[in-house]
Structures are given as structure tokens and as C-alpha cells.
Nucleic acid binder design. Structure first.
Lengths: 203, 203
DNA sequence: ATGCAATGTTAACGGCGTTAACTTCAGCAA
DNA sequence: TTGCTGAAGTTAACGCCGTTAACATTGCAT
């Protein structure tokens, strides 16, 4: 479709890009369809030709976020199991720190009830899958315990997700040397927190 | 102040209670000052005599939430270090599951930028303190490693917070037997995830 | 060339948070 | 007792917002 004065021709893309920029800079609550249309130079209802409503637009942005996160996780070196697991954790938290507003949109839960946007669920699952694959890999190599995969994966994901959330919301005081904290925490999950000179590991 | 037809006399309390009920049932995005005032039977600007704006009202609700969470955590039996730590984790996740909407308000980060409401920050810290005390206790009893307290505490909090968030947002498939999952994950953080017949614990 | 479907437009509805300006009333000082 | 004051309520209004209905333009396939 060519671009005339009337038919914009690239509205979906432009709306997506500019909305993404706003979310990244100011958070999803700053997204207003009227302001967005104004900024693009188009009437507000025109946006409804491409997005069912405000939430659907936000869902698309969240999908972008999950895809980016997945790429970051895929880039982690998988040679050594231990460094792969720690590396995934670091990459995960680093993404959240680089894109806090996008991360909040992706995991806010407030805006997007699960199940309402299947493609969003799928994108989240795809990112999660990278983590699960890494855990499964570590298990197959005999590095990780033979505990249920779902349990190990849930633990890993909970840890990095919780740390990300607490970090970007400023709940953890003195978060200056962040990567070190993330690495230390991940190591704790691997090695355990109990003092082994006093207690035996659970059988 | 007595209650006449004009002066309501109990508006602050009523607004707090009814708003809390709405948040618990429908989430904070369902809070509208106009609707709330209508429901109470008062004009909208009357609310502004007691709350600076919508966000301040939400902040008060979040404070309530943190206080409740703190009470739940304080009720955990502290006799045995291990069961105290696991118990705290279970209580934490249980609270999130019982009050998902309130929990999202407390930790959403979207609504309430840290530092804007000092009393809210303080309430969050007080809840966090219970967890930190439990960890410190476990350390003093020699049950936990002598790692930096901040590190151990951050790990514990990240884990339970992440699990809570993922659980209430439905990111973890097959979350039927939830307490079991939470207990298993907490145990993983205590005992470690690596297979010790193959690898030595990190020195 | 024509008709259709996609993609725009304007106009309007009802809701929202917030503020300004005014009113009522409880409690206290003279 | 009277009169004042300040807290706590009121109405009216501003400017946003998401969304829908009804209509206009246009590219493309027939």
C-alpha cells in the first residue's frame, strides 16, 4: 500500500515503534491512544483499524519485550553448565535493569490477564523455554540434581524474576554492584545456603 | 466530630475500607475516585480532604497490605531454623495467593514510584525485616552459611517474591499443588541444586 | 471502469482526576 | 450567648481519556 495524504500506509509499524519508545521511557501508564495518534499525525480512531483497543496495543509491546528477552537469553554461552546457568541469570536481570518499564509491562499482570492474548502467552513461554532448556541441559550433563525439571526450572525462574523485580523497584538497598549480587544469588541456589559442616544435605 | 447530614464524620475510614475491598476484588485499576465517592454517598472532591490524590489513596491501601503480610510472617514458628525458613516462604506465597490484587498493588512498581510515599517504603521495609531477622537467626544458630546477610536475605526474598508473582500471574503451568512447589523450591535454595556426587560444593 | 474492502475521517458519549469557589457546621474565645 | 475560624463538605468546571457510530477516501481486483 502506497502512502498518500489520506492513507498513512505504515500506521501499524509507526504506532508500535512510537508506543514502544513511550513505554520504555515513561512506562505503560503513559500510553494514551489519543496522544499517540496526535504524535503520529493521524486521527485517534485510525488506530482502531490496527489494534482492537489499548490493551491489545500494550500486548503487542509486551510481545516485543519477550522476544528481545529471549534473544538475550539465547546469546548466553552454553559450554559449561554452571557458567551457563549463572550467565542466564545475569542476562535476565541485566535485561530487566536495561528495560525496567518494558519488563513491568511484560510481567505486571495488572494490564494483561493471562489467556486474553494467546500470542503474548506464547511469547512469554518461548522466553521461559530458553531457561528450561538450560536447566534440562545441566541435568542431562549430570551437573544438576535429578529433581523434577519443573521444580528446578521454577526455582531458577522465580529467583531471577524476583531479583529483577525487586531490583528495578528499588526494594533492595545498596544495589550498586548489581551483577555481583545476581551472580552471588544464583550461586546460592546452585550450592545451597546451609552450612554443611553442621548439617548433612537432605538425602 | 459528630456525624450530621453534612459532615460525614467517618469518610477517611470508609473510603479506605471500601477502596480496599474494591482492590481486593477487582485490582487497583478498578479504583475510581468518582465511583468510590458515589458509592459512599459523598461528592468526589470530599475525598480530597483526606487523600492528596488517587495515588495517595492507593499508597494507603498498599501500606495495609504490607502490614498484613508482616503479621502473617510474624506468625511463623521460629523454633527450628530450617522449618522457620521454609515456613516463611510458604506464608509469603500463601499471602500472595490469597490477595493477588493487593499483592500486585504492593509490588507493582507501576503505580507507586519508590520514595514518593515514605510511610509506604517504611511499611515494606518492616515486612522485609521479618524475613531478614529469620535469616540472621538461622545464621547465628550456625544453620546457614556465613555469607553476607544482605546476600542471603536478597536470595530468599527474591525467590519467594518471584514465585509469588509468577504464581498469581499464571506463568507456572500446573500450579495445582502450590504449597508443595513452594516448599520444594525453598528447600532447593537451602540445599542447593547441584549434584554433589559429581561436583564438590564451591569452597 | 467499477465495485469492494481496507483505511482513513469527524462527531459524539460517557467517564475520569483534579481544581476553584462557595457552603455548612463544630468547637472555642470573648 | 455570640461570633469567629477552620475543617469538611458542596457544585461547577476544565481538560483529558477510551471507545463507537457514521461517513469519506482510496488501492486493487474483477
Amino acid at each position: 500500500m502506497a502512502r498518500t495524504a489520506y492513507h498513512h500506509g505504515d500506521l501499524y509499524q509507526q504506532a508500535h515503534e512510537q508506543a514502544l519508545a513511550i513505554v520504555r521511557e515513561q512506562g505503560d501508564s503513559a500510553i494514551s491512544l489519543r496522544a499517540l495518534a496526535r504524535q503520529i499525525g493521524v486521527s485517534t480512531p485510525a488506530l482502531y483499524r490496527h489494534y482492537a483497543d489499548r490493551e491489545s496495543l500494550l500486548a503487542e509491546l509486551a510481545i516485543s519485550g519477550f522476544q528481545t528477552l529471549r534473544q538475550h537469553l539465547l546469546a548466553v554461552d552454553q559450554q559449561d553448565s554452571r557458567s551457563a546457568l549463572i550467565g542466564i541469570g545475569l542476562a535476565y536481570v541485566a535485561f530487566a535493569r536495561e528495560e525496567p518499564n518494558l519488563y513491568r509491562l511484560m510481567f505486571g499482570g495488572r494490564v494483561l490477564p493471562r489467556g486474553a492474548h494467546p500470542r503474548l502467552d506464547q511469547a512469554g513461554l518461548a522466553a521461559f523455554q530458553v531457561l528450561e532448556d538450560t536447566v534440562a541441559n545441566g541435568q542431562q550433563r549430570g551437573y544438576l540434581k535429578a529433581a523434577p525439571l519443573a521444580l528446578l526450572t521454577a526455582a531458577a525462574w522465580s529467583l531471577v524474576h524476583g531479583l529483577s523485580q525487586l531490583t528495578i523497584d528499588g526494594h533492595l538497598p545498596g544495589h550498586d554492584n548489581e551483577p555481583q549480587l545476581a551472580a552471588g544469588i544464583t550461586a546460592l541456589l546452585l550450592d545451597g545456603s546451609i552450612e554443611r559442616s553442621n548439617k548433612e544435605p537432605t538425602p
